[in-house]
């Protein structure tokens, strides 16, 4: 009898609950994404139009799911600064296994790799999810970049920094 009355009570509770006002909000596709939303990657150029990446492979080493592959080229003298520096001949990010942890961004010493705020489009081919160097450099101009780069993220991690600086 206890079970019987309990069953009836729960049925009544369901009906009562269904007359309560809705507490969730409607999905708004036009709404702006959160400030820190990040979805894909881009490689950046410096002020001279030269690639930022020096091929140090820090991002390749720190990546937890090992989706980044950097092929470092030989060091040569930059024609703009006159200093000897490294270059990356090839740079791929395999989004199929990426966990979007942003560790590659925070470790980058030259602010070369950053995240962008728009996802890659869905596709029928798995190879479309592998970001090649060309796609990464194209993302720099075609998609809005995330606010974070390696310098800012490392400054936030500094325990001696004043709390106001991290408000960005």
């Amino acid at each position: 009898m206890k079970y019987f009355s309990g069953s009836i009570d729960s049925l009544i509770a369901t009906i009562k609950n269904s007359f309560r006002p809705v507490v969730t909000e409607s999905v708004r596709p036009e709404a702006s994404r959160a400030e820190r939303y990040r979805a894909s990657f881009a490689l950046t150029h410096d002020a001279n139009g030269e690639q930022n990446c020096i091929g140090c492979k820090l991002c390749e080493n720190i990546c937890p799911s090992t989706v980044i592959t950097v092929v470092a080229g030989p060091k040569r003298v930059s024609e703009f600064t006159g200093k000897k520096r490294g270059y990356a001949d090839d740079f791929t990010v395999d989004l199929q296994a990426c966990i979007y942890c942003e560790l590659c961004v925070s470790v980058c010493p030259t602010d070369s790799i950053v995240m962008v705020r728009v996802q890659e489009q869905p596709s029928f081919d798995r190879e479309d999810l592998v970001l090649t160097q060309d796609k990464l450099y194209a993302n720099e101009t075609s998609k809005p970049l995330s606010w974070a780069n390696g310098t800012k993220l490392r400054a936030m991690l500094d325990p001696n920094a004043s709390p106001e600086e991290d408000a960005s």
Binding site: T14, N17, S18, P21, V22, V23, T24, S26
Partner: peptide
């Protein structure tokens, strides 16, 4: 939709 009503959600509405 009924589930959403019972749980005070909106459910499919797009």
């Amino acid at each position: 939709k009924f589930t959403a009503v019972v749980q005070n959600r909106l459910g499919p509405n797009v």
